[in-house]
Write a protein that binds this DNA or RNA. Structure first.
Lengths: 351, 351
DNA sequence: AGGTACTGTGGGAGCGCTCCCATCAGTGAT
DNA sequence: ATCACTGATGGGAGCGCTCCCACAGTACCT
């Protein structure tokens, strides 16, 4: 971590030019060595590397960005208030995956919150200035204008989840359909006969797919689907309580519930308890996300796990591809740019 | 959030030069308007602003950085693994304060983790490249080489807390001494006669000052200080348990404990419970930090609150001053650059 | 009338790099 | 010996901005 060598005569940081003089080569050659071009002889490369070490040369990023028209930075944009970012494990997992994958490269990660209007304004300005080479968009709602802004500005972007079945942006999603199916399949195999579903917000595509999976799971078991067993919530605890209450009114003989999120499951649990029902003896309960809540619930909650960290890694891979690709476009189809990672049922005591 | 106007004829983003041509003025004048120089007539300014709006001009940050030798970005360096960053409310509070203060300016905030050796290596490279104008250093241990690296590179920096009484860097600290005193004073006023102290790590200056405050608090009350009442911990829950156990062995008649952190207080609470003592009836308990733990403890924990968000704001103010100041140095003393913000006792049921 | 002092403005120079073209030496084919 | 062709290298041009000097214009003194 020491600063090498002496400062160049000019007093400031050494420049490419000075390294070139020191190594007895031209400026272009030093540039080639710095950027790892293969078109340099071994002897020359060694001489340049020695000069770089002696002078403690570090490239000037601003100059590089100006000349090459790239920034070597990407942004992780969180269109949420900061509080949610810290509260939900989703983001920290995502950040871990992204950070890990990025540490293999020279790219710098920027974390940008765009929860308030003011922050969004700043972000728009930021993007218009092209201060990043690409953007990772997490937790985007169906009607968010951000994705369009990005394509307008021709900034490569990858989105987590999809806004609809016809998502146009490169995306990384988890298999919400499969997750929903697996949950139901599990409940059926445990001998549960009347299985309700507390759905998430229906303007979130992933929530729709979980419902689809729930339906298919029942059909696979040769059962009929009664739509009154599906009650929409809004991903919140309060929404879970309301939906659960309604569901119990409709079906007092309910013996299993699949909730579209762990938080909703927590709300449902309260209502079930208050109604005198035991978990899992009377009613089995399954959540979604496998968050900390699931592990700490009493009893521990069976939940569907999304490989969030891995999704983060995949998003970076896709994004770097997009950035590298920048050809006349349409050279590759979208098929390869939309990933769906498997979801996995984590069975605990609640089911 | 729309992109204004049409693209310039050259196809890419409009440049200063193009704005100048459009407004019928020189390049320098446009630059003056963009940078808010007062040396421009009102008429000219209006013409330039119109041209900027029409063309949707956004300055090229790279070019500006290169020419002006500044980046308009500062880094918040967290020398901890990411997990701690998300786990401890300290960081989110700090980030909130910093973000709020910074949103008044054009500065960009970078969040950099330097928990692992590898990350520190990257950070060193990053700083050597002068990719930020200044650095905010939070949670720095006494022997961390980072502060020295920064002064060597002549990068303005502000540190949270102090490494010792002779801290050389500009810093923002909270009044740990006053906080310790207030805690003891409160316990004395509640009629407690034998007050123990679970200290933090003694290589952390703030922890030392809390001990000093504890001592002075007792002296103020006209009591003698028995050093055996002070047991060092290490800020962890386990450390709190160990220290508490030891303290009870030494003084079975203890009726109050001041812990150097909420987490240690949580450990102490366990031991007290197991020994059959009730809180606060038999033993009063006070923590430090006023974190979420304190509010959720049973009974809710009296704790000393540090104004962390405000500290974040203050750090930004100091840092921006440092950056703006960059004169031959030594023009201002250090006195004005070391802030100590008051700590405040939050009384709850545990005392 | 000339001198002095300011304000507002234009534009040259230069920040440190990448890109690309010209050049050169070496190699094998004619 | 001549002619491609190759790989390695040097260095000009230019990225878009800021800084600063020069200069015109105006105002106010002597």
């Amino acid at each position: 971590m020491a600063v090498h060598g002496a400062r160049s005569r000019s007093g400031g940081r050494p420049t490419l030019e000075e390294v070139a003089a020191r190594a007895g080569v031209g400026r272009g050659t030093v540039s080639r060595v710095i950027n790892g071009s293969p078109r340099v002889s071994d002897a020359t490369r060694a001489a340049v590397e020695a000069a770089v070490a002696e002078l403690g040369y570090v490239p000037n990023t601003a100059a590089r960005a100006l000349a090459a028209n790239r920034t070597d930075a990407i942004a992780l944009v969180v269109p949420e208030p900061e509080t949610r970012f810290f509260a939900e494990p989703y983001f920290s997992d995502m950040l871990r995956g992204v950070g890990a994958e990025l540490s293999e490269t020279e790219m710098q990660l920027l974390l940008i919150f765009a929860g308030s209007d003011r922050e969004r304004q700043r972000l728009a300005q930021y993007l218009a200035a092209h201060r990043v080479d690409g953007v990772l968009l997490v937790s985007v709602h169906a009607d968010d204008p951000l994705p369009d802004l990005l394509s307008q500005l021709e900034i490569p972007a990858v989105i987590s989840g999809r806004r609809s079945a016809e998502e146009t942006l490169p995306s990384v999603d988890s298999d919400n359909y499969g997750g929903g199916r697996a949950a139901v399949e599990h409940l059926v195999s445990r001998g549960r006969s009347r299985i309700g579903h507390l759905a998430g917000r229906m303007d979130v595509y992933g929530a729709q797919r979980r419902v689809d999976g729930y339906r298919q799971g029942l059909r696979d078991a040769g059962r009929e689907v009664d739509d009154r067993l599906i009650v929409p919530g809004d991903f919140t605890e309060e929404g879970g309580r309301r939906a659960m209450t309604l569901l119990l009114e409709r079906f007092p003989d309910l013996d299993a519930v699949f909730a579209g999120s762990d938080v909703m499951a927590a709300g449902a649990r309260q209502v079930l308890r208050e109604s005198g029902r035991r978990i899992p003896d009377d009613v089995a309960l399954i959540g979604y996300d496998d968050s900390a809540i699931a592990r700490h619930m009493d009893p521990p909650l069976t939940s569907v796990r999304q490989p969030i960290e891995e999704m983060g890694r995949a998003m970076i891979d896709l994004l770097l591809g997009e950035i590298a690709d920048r050809r006349p476009a349409a050279s590759r189809g979208l098929e390869k740019r939309q990933l769906v990672l498997p979801a996995e049922l984590v069975v605990r005591a609640s089911s």
